[in-house]
Structures are given as structure tokens and as C-alpha cells.
Design a binder for these strands. Structure first.
Lengths: 231, 231
DNA sequence: CTGTATCCGTGTTGATACTG
DNA sequence: CAGTATCAACACGGATACAG
């Protein structure tokens, strides 16, 4: 299926600029957020729906079909025992990650960004890759593995002065494991919430090197807020 | 004006993910393309309209007001002789450039990207910054200034193995100046059209170091096209 | 349980015409 | 040149019903 099969020509930008073409492809409402959810690996329809608050089933169906039609998403049938279908990004789909990172980096400066809303584990993983500051890790000499057990996902971040590498991985290899909702991890890393408070309330549990966990907030600095005249 | 003053809550994603918030702010149709046009400096209403093929006046008005309301665009009155109004990006607005670059880099891989459509000089400038390959410039030892006189804009690109720096500048400093429509420059740099053909047809004129002009296409390689199953 | 199809109310979009 | 007013078309989201 070609994109113009189901998209009216008036809906397209008719602009040779590749950025405009990108918006022809994935500029519809929800499209990039569906891709965001798939950045952490294949997901089922209901997983997607659960992590995209407010999307309706028919819109999710349309987006998945649309993205499949342009070669960004593919549908996979799992082998017999699972007997389920999942949606996955194609290689090209995964290459859209820098778009999400730059969108996030830019909007983190927004005076109206409200970090208290629902936050998926896919968003958390992407935010780690986006906000990690290798210079600070080098300055503090950190070289460690941090495990995250958030929602149904578990991933492992290897952090050092050379950079960050986050992926699904064996949490037994981690120096410290944080267990809790993505929102709790966000509170720790970006919200300035003391680790002790999160543990006291039961929002987050820490297993392993506590000093390492306490040092994490300094490694993911948020950019300064933009100054907006009228407010 | 706050964003939720004129945007229904149902229209927003209600997601703490900063990328989702970015789409709340600039995810509406045309918004990012308006910002693209302003990336090369302040523009008048009619300039914007001319370089955004198909946008209607009322939509442009709404987007400009919306972007002004969130602090991405500001309206400036030019001093008396000019007696005109222009729209300009704020500092925060200019920081959105990486979003446009990554959108463009990604969509350049699309099998359906049609480079024969209208192309603004702002798009050309951004594409130079996006596609420049410093490694190739280093390998060929290029270290030069290339002037572009496209449409009403003139800008100067300093290119070397250290990177590219494109901005408005004095074309007298250039080693070579290319004059023509943005589409002709695109044909040369990305379309594989021989320089001689473009000159013969009058689409492009070259003033200065012709060997340098002929070497340019190799410095802005496009990424390989994505492989899409069904087509 | 995992989607898919259809209807319908609502709001955004876009074309045309028009005004300062 | 720089927008505003009006109106039709369509995309979106919700609900419901249905299919594997």
C-alpha cells in the first residue's frame, strides 16, 4: 500500500523538504507516540492501548495499519504457545528514535511541561538515552550497571563516561536495581524527589548499591526552562 | 496565553513524556513547517505563505498566533522606513532545529520521498546542515566557502573536515557562488544532475571555483533508502 | 481476549470571499 | 500586503456491535 492510497492529496504537504515528507508519513495524531511505545520492542494491541492514555481502539487500529502500510511497523504472529500477534517496528521504524529524542529534549524546556501525568516505561527508557550527560559521568567516575524493573519491562543501563547503553538485559548483572512505577523513577531522576522519600512511601525499592542509586539524579540533568514573555 | 487556554483538554495527550508534550505544542498541522521557514531568520506573512505551498491564510494566522502564545514565535514591528511586521523565532524556537534535522534525515530514507516538489531556501539551508558529511570533507581536504544565492536569500557555507557552518553572510567572501532556484541546487547536491546540465539549461549559474562546485555533491550523501516489503 | 467495522457528534482544517 | 469571516469537508474520538 502506498501512502497516497489512503491519504488525500490535499492532506499532504507537497513539499520536497524531507522534514515535510516525514510529517506526511508520521505527522498524524498518535503516530509518533505509537512508534515511541514500540521503540522498546514488539508490543500487543492492548499493551499499546494501555500506555497511550486516551487513544481509542479504532484510532490505534488505523495508525497501526497506516504505519504498516508505509513500512514503519510490521505485524508478527508469535509461534504457537503464545498464539498472539504483536506489532514491531521495522529497521526503518527504529531509526526514527532520534526524532523522539529531539522532540523530548526540546519540550523538556517548555514552561508548561507537566511531569506528573502518566509515563510509560518506553518513555522512561528513551528519556534515559536522551538526558544522560556523559561529561558528568566522567567527572564522577561512574561506571556501573543500573537495572530498572518498571511496569512489565525490565531493562539494564550501562553508564560510564563513554556514554549510556540501555536495553533489555539481565537484571542479575546490575549493581543496583530500581523497582517501581516509571513515575517514581522520574521523580527520582528528574523531579528532585529524595530517594528516601520514594522508598518510605513504597513507590520505589532499591536493591544493591544505594550510593549509586543516590548518585543517579546528577547524571540526567534537564535543560533549563525557556523564558517565555507573556506567560 | 497558556496552551490550554485555546486547546481542548481532549486534544492533548495527557502524557508526561516530553516528546508527547512537544506534539501538544507543535504537533498541529503546519506548525513545524512554519518554524522551518523561520529558521533562516524573520519573515513576513507573505513570505511564509509563499514558501508553504497550500497553506491558507487563516491557518497561517492561527499557527502564528498559537506559536506566539506558547513563546516559540514573536512578532516584531520593523522600524519606520520598512513599516512592516515580521515573525521571528524566539531563542527557544531556534532550539527546535534538531527536530527538523532528524525528521529530514529519517524521511530522506523514505521510498516515497519525491524530491521534485517545491523546495524553499530555508529547507535547503537546513538540508545542508543535516546532510553534510565531515568525514568526506576531511578525506578530500576540502576547506572552502560556498555561497548560495537562492530565491531572495543569500547564505554562505563554510565547509571543512571540522564541519559545516551555514548562515547569512557576504557572498564576496565565497570561493564559489551558486545562483539559481533551490530546486536546481537540490538537483546538483542530491539528485545526481550533472553541473554541466544545470548550467546548460540556465537553471544554475556558477561563479568562481568550478572544481569546488563539482566536488560538492560528494559531500552531502543521502542515507540509503529503507527497504519496504509490500511496496 | 484481541482486535475490527460502523455510526455519529464535535472540532479542526482548508477554500473562498472579503476587509483594513 | 496582512489578515478576518464564513462555511463545507473531513479527521478525530466515543460508543457500540461484531469477528477470530
Amino acid at each position: 500500500m502506498r501512502p497516497d492510497t489512503d491519504t488525500d492529496d490535499r492532506r499532504r504537504y507537497n513539499d520536497a523538504c524531507a522534514a515535510a515528507h516525514a510529517l506526511d508519513l508520521v505527522g498524524e495524531r498518535w503516530a509518533l507516540l505509537v512508534m515511541r511505545e514500540l521503540m522498546t520492542g514488539p508490543k500487543r494491541f492492548s499493551d499499546l492501548r494501555a500506555n497511550l492514555p486516551g487513544i481509542s481502539a479504532n484510532i490505534l487500529t488505523r495508525r497501526l495499519h497506516g504505519l504498516e502500510g508505509i513500512g514503519v511497523v510490521e505485524r508478527r504472529e508469535l509461534p504457537p504457545p503464545a498464539a498472539s500477534k504483536v506489532y514491531a517496528l521495522t529497521a526503518w521504524g527504529y531509526q526514527a528514535e532520534p526524532i523522539l529524542r529531539e522532540l523530548g529534549r526540546w519540550a523538556a524546556r517548555s514552561p508548561w511541561h507537566d511531569p506528573t501525568m502518566p509515563f510509560s516505561s518506553a518513555s522512561l527508557l528513551l528519556s534515559l538515552r536522551t538526558m544522560f550527560d556523559a561529561g558528568r559521568a566522567a567527572a564522577t567516575g561512574v561506571d556501573a550497571r543500573v537495572g530498572f524493573a518498571v511496569g512489565h519491562d525490565r531493562f539494564l543501563a550501562r553508564i560510564s563516561g563513554a556514554g549510556i547503553d540501555v536495553d533489555h538485559g539481565d537484571l542479575d548483572l546490575a549493581d543496583v536495581v530500581l523497582t517501581g512505577a516509571p513515575e517514581a523513577v522520574v521523580g527520582l531522576l528528574y523531579g528532585g524527589v529524595p530517594l528516601a522519600d520514594l522508598e518510605a512511601s513504597g513507590a520505589l525499592s532499591v536493591d544493591g548499591d544505594r550510593a549509586l542509586a543516590a548518585a543517579l539524579p546528577g547524571l540526567f540533568p534537564l535543560p533549563p526552562k525557556a523564558e517565555v514573555a507573556s506567560d
